[in-house]
Nucleic acid binder design. Sequence first.
DNA 1: AGGGTGTCCTGGAGGC
DNA 2: TGCCTCCAGGACACCC
Length: 275
Amino acid sequence: MPELPEVETIAAALSRAVVGEKIVKIEVFSPAMRTPLTPLLYAHLEGRQITSVRRRARYLIIGLDDERCILMHFGMSGVIRLEGAEVPKRKHEHIFLYLSGGMILRFECPRRFSICEVHSDLATTGVPRELESRLGVEPLTPDFSGEYLYSVSRNRKNPVKNFIMDNAIVVGVGNIYATESLFAAGISPLRPAGELTRPEAEKLTTEIKTILKRAIAAGGSTIRDYRHVDGSEGKFAQTLLMYGHAGEPCPRCGSIIECVKLGGRSSCYCPECQK
DNA sequence: AGGGTGTCCTGGAGGC
DNA sequence: TGCCTCCAGGACACCC
């Protein structure tokens, strides 16, 4: 599943590969994903040149030469590939963007949790204004600091795990990264966010950054062959210590790893190491 | 306004 | 073996 690190790597790879190319033709195969796909809207993109490819939160933003952009979100099963026409269309491929260089940007999403929209009201960052206004800070920038997390969490009563997964606070921290960073920081996912001490807030932001960076490094190997095969599962999965290990011994202390539901998401943690 | 719940979707896993 | 149920995930609408 494309998390922030994967989208980061995809954006970098696509930026090198498709900036400057024109969209010569568009095919939309499916009526809807999470939001409706309207072929007429997409048809208006034909002839447009791609001027940039960037990431914001978990969104991929393809900038066009008419001050619009294509906004993509991969949900949990979305895959984007750059391939030629010789590859047969897959069952769940929904959109083909034919590029002037001869390749096709192909968007696949079996579970239809993805988003592909065209936006025109862009902020100076190139991000749709309506989206930008709702998003919190990027986790890998200095804006996301222990001081920031500490100050915005005051008086908040919901569990710290839900809090760091809130996109209005900090973007791109999904269930896996939230689970792993809380273990690394020794903080129980159940703790009310407002009870974090300042040192704990520092520790948690540090661990979130560290784990995301490690995943980017591991994700690179996944993305390198994204043109050839489906590489959606990165090597990072093998390094997960808590996520998906309910009932097994904690790798640090040997206690049995517990699992609770928080915000509808399963949350594994070590009751001894995480307080 | 914060916080909780339900919804979207489908492939895969597990139970019977 | 085949059928059924449940679960996974991010974002957001909706409620209290």
